[in-house]
């Protein structure tokens, strides 16, 4: 049952049966193909960024990975389970921080955590201790009894991360986790996510249109444009393709004809 035993690492370092495996994953909305034959593999514990401008298909891809949206065709295997055939198993092995704020503003931070602890079937005897530890890890102990509607954007994001990882998922998906946050808030979210990753060893898959942020925190990234994967690799590999002191934004512009950063800046 434990999905991690299904993974072995090949001699060349690439994972066989990664924690996320997409094969020709496609989603259409009417005549629009939002995600177009995406194939990628993400290894356990890896930090992976999906980069692209608004409308590129990042959220749609995430929604398919998290079973929120059925694929039109193709396949996605998450933590060893097929999103189309075993969605409930997938959901019990992942965490998801969606693009819109998903913590309940009318509940306190602690009440939100208890809600998640129950939904994820954390045994009653361990609930209080696990919730307290998770809140502490995210730096929210002081604010635990305040209504979430009084939280800053960064605090609310950290609460959502805590809610999404109480059950120690194999992968944490985060859709534009830092959009709209000030630089301090962004740094705090990432510092806490990195701590958490060290603690539970989950892979982290996130989308962003901040190139600098992606480059700083990710192991590998995929450039997404028009629903397709334009390029995939480590930030260094991708920059080396252009040579000299190219930035990731240069790579993106070169590969897709549009600027990722500029395209992403319009909300």
């Amino acid at each position: 049952m434990d999905a991690s035993t299904a993974h072995s690492i090949r001699v060349d370092g690439s994972a066989v049966g990664g924690v996320v495996e997409a094969r020709n994953l496609t989603r259409r909305f009417g005549s629009l193909t939002a995600v177009d034959h995406v194939s990628l593999s993400i290894a356990p514990g890896e930090v992976f960024a999906l980069i692209g401008p608004n409308g590129a298909g990042k959220s749609t891809l995430m929604k398919m990975f998290t079973t929120m949206l059925p694929p039109t065709s193709g396949q996605a295997i998450i933590a060893g389970f097929d999103v189309a055939k075993a969605p409930q198993q997938v959901r019990s092995h992942i965490g998801y921080v969606p693009q819109v704020l998903s913590a309940d503003g009318e509940l306190t931070g602690y009440e939100n955590m208890i809600l998640s602890a129950r939904l994820y079937l954390i045994p009653a005897a361990e609930r209080a201790a696990k919730v307290a530890a998770a809140l502490a890890m995210m730096g929210l102990t002081e604010a635990r009894d305040r209504l979430v509607q009084t939280y800053s954007g960064g605090m609310a994001r950290r609460l959502e991360v805590a809610q999404s990882t109480l059950h120690r998922p194999a992968v944490l998906f985060m859709d534009e986790p830092t959009v709209g946050l000030d630089p301090g808030g962004r740094r705090a979210v990432w510092a806490h996510v990195q701590d958490l990753r060290r603690e539970i060893g989950a892979a982290v898959v996130f989308s962003t249109h901040y190139m600098d942020e992606a480059e700083e925190v990710c192991d590998r990234l995929a450039l997404i444009a028009g629903g397709k994967v334009a390029a995939i690799g480590t930030p260094a590999e991708l920059k080396a393709r252009l040579g000299g002191d190219a930035t990731l934004d240069d790579v993106f512009t070169q590969l897709t004809g549009v600027s990722g950063e500029l395209g992403g800046a319009t909300p």
């Binding site: 998640s116 939904l119 999404s164």
Partner: peptide
């Protein structure tokens, strides 16, 4: 619209 429903939908609860 608020996003709260996602928190429920992504949980393993039937």
């Amino acid at each position: 619209d608020l996003g709260v429903l996602h928190r429920y939908m992504v949980s393993p609860a039937p």
